[in-house]
Design a binder for these strands. Structure first.
Lengths: 212, 212
DNA sequence: AGCCTCCCGAAACAAACGTTTGAAACGTAT
DNA sequence: ATACGTTTCAAACGTTTGTTTCGGGAGGCT
């Protein structure tokens, strides 16, 4: 990354600053000065700040969805191997596809996802639904196969519950670990948090369906 | 609310606009003009925009915590009645204490909580921990009694997972219901979402603890 | 050479922001 | 009626924002 091109230097810096302070709170000047590029470079290469934000997400989501698509194709070819644990592990593995060398990029990815969700009424929700709605629905169909006892619509809602728990947790991973350390005097690694989260999510998705 | 005082008109308008567009994206001019008060009124009555944001949260959190505190005291007086379902219902009831007539205020409350969490590194996290950390820890202790099979630290993490699922879901309630309607052709009420969420959360908290 | 396209750089732009000011209007008690 | 503390108002302040402009340089092509 030492002497990457201007576009990549902007993206590298923007994703870090966005994750640290939010989109509106991060000015183009903060990005360009830290990236060592001219202020006008953002509008020249990306057109606008909005497009820069979308470009940051695209750089994360493209490898993520590509990896996820591949693994889902494999699973669909061998339907007997489809299970909840297997599907959740697939998500977990696909998330690792975004790190490109630096493991911290996974945390940045989830921080940004959390930010994007809260800013939901803006341009980002449209962007997500347009570009990645198909991948999501495909995953939903596989999941319905994995937990046949849970009706498809119930699966839909529980996936969103699980998504909330995941984004919320991984996006605030470091502060949560700090609280855990100060309240319990125990140091837990991000991997241990992942394990706990997976157990929680699996338990929630498999919960007995209430009669309504 | 027709002719309330300036302070309340500002708070009423601010909480709606903040929930719709976010804190940084909502200008004081937008608030004051919609509220029908002078621009300077915010700085006169609250001191700054940051203080206004905290005042908005305080108006939600004070009745919420008061109600929660009362119900926790009752439960502590009759420890035999402590159960996970009972505790979750306590939270649910306390959330209703913030609506002050208009039911939509509950949704606003959770939207704001979601926003606050994503903007976590700012002044809000300090504000929350200082003012409401005790109530949270008290609830955590009760919960550890309700699920004795789950170690306290595991409970801590699972509460945060559940918090994420809840805030994420309730903060995006309307868009999620719209997706559900278009994808499944079924209209679900917010109450039905609450029921599903409670089942998910209970299942997650009670999940078997993995050996690590 | 000339020309063209792409990229960078410093400067400037208008707009919007949170905040401050000082005077006018208000209600109330003396 | 006068004086006083409180609240409201229009206007302006200085900064910061995203975006645009325009000159110039590097490299490829005819």
């Amino acid at each position: 990354m030492a002497q990457a091109g201007t576009v990549d230097r902007i993206l590298d810096t923007a994703e870090v600053l966005f994750a640290q302070k939010g989109f509106a709170e991060t000015s183009l000047r903060a990005i360009t000065s830290k990236a060592g590029v001219n202020l006008a470079a953002v509008n020249y290469h990306f057109g606008s700040k909005e497009s820069l934000i979308q470009a940051v997400f695209e750089r994360f989501l493209k490898p993520f969805c590509a990896h996820l698509d591949n693994m889902m194709s494999e699973l669909e070819a061998h339907p007997a191997e489809i299970s909840l644990e297997r599907l959740l592990a697939t998500l977990s593995k696909s998330a690792l596809a975004v790190q490109r060398g630096e493991p911290q990029r996974v945390a940045i990815f989830f921080r940004l996802s959390g930010l994007a969700y809260s800013q939901a009424q803006g341009h980002l929700r449209r962007f997500f639904r347009e570009h990645y709605g198909d991948v999501f629905r495909r995953f939903l169909r596989l999941l319905a196969v994995a937990v046949p006892d849970v009706p498809p619509m119930e699966v839909f809602w529980r996936v969103h519950f699980a998504l909330g728990a995941t984004i919320f947790t991984l996006s605030g991973m470091d502060p949560l670990r700090a609280i855990c350390r100060s309240d319990f005097g125990v140091e837990v690694s991000p991997q241990q948090v992942d394990e706990r989260l997976l157990a929680f999510v699996a338990g929630g998705i498999r919960a007995t369906v209430s009669a309504s």
